[in-house]
Simulated assay, not measured.
Amino acid sequence: MRRIATTLGAVVAAATMALALPGSAFAATGNLVINGIGHKDPGGCYSTGPLVSIIVNQTDRLAYIYSDADCFGEVQAIVQPGLATLSFGSSVFIR
């Protein structure tokens, strides 16, 4: 009887972890619009080009605008969910 309780406890713990962890690994939910081009449920780094960019963050995550391509360099701005900004950055990162 003790083995069954131990095994059942381990299964319940594993199931709880399996249900709790995946949410943090998935991409943002919503749309990230960069210069009029939408990216549904974005995740990762997006190039904005060398000119001034319009970033519209319609997701549930923060969007980080970097000074250099490939999301390197300094963070120029952080765009909150539901907001838009003009940016001089070269790339945008969103989780």
Rank of each mutant, 00 (worst) to 15 (best):
G89S: 05
S47F: 14
P81Y: 04
P50I: 14
G9E: 00
A20R: 08
D68V: 11
R61F: 07
A69M: 14
D41M: 03
I54D: 12
T48D: 08
I37F: 12
V12E: 05
A15W: 04
S67W: 05
N57H: 04
F88E: 10
V56F: 11
L21C: 12
A5R: 06
P50K: 13
V52P: 07
A10M: 05
G36F: 01
Q58R: 14
F72C: 14
N35E: 05
A63V: 08
G36M: 02
V56D: 13
M17L: 15
A18L: 13
K40W: 12
A14V: 01
F88G: 10
V56C: 11
V52W: 07
T29D: 15
T6V: 10
I78D: 07
E74T: 15
M17V: 08
Y66A: 03
F26G: 15
I34S: 03
A63K: 01
A84H: 10
I37Q: 10
P81S: 07
S90K: 02
T85N: 14
A20V: 07
T16K: 07
A69S: 11
H39D: 06
G44M: 02
P22Y: 06
V75Y: 05
L86R: 08
G9L: 04
I55M: 04
A63G: 08
A18M: 10
I54Q: 13
L86G: 14
A14C: 06
D68C: 12
I4H: 04
G43A: 03
V75E: 05
P22K: 04
D60Y: 10
L83C: 13
G30V: 02
I65R: 00
F26S: 14
F72M: 11
Q58D: 12
N35S: 08
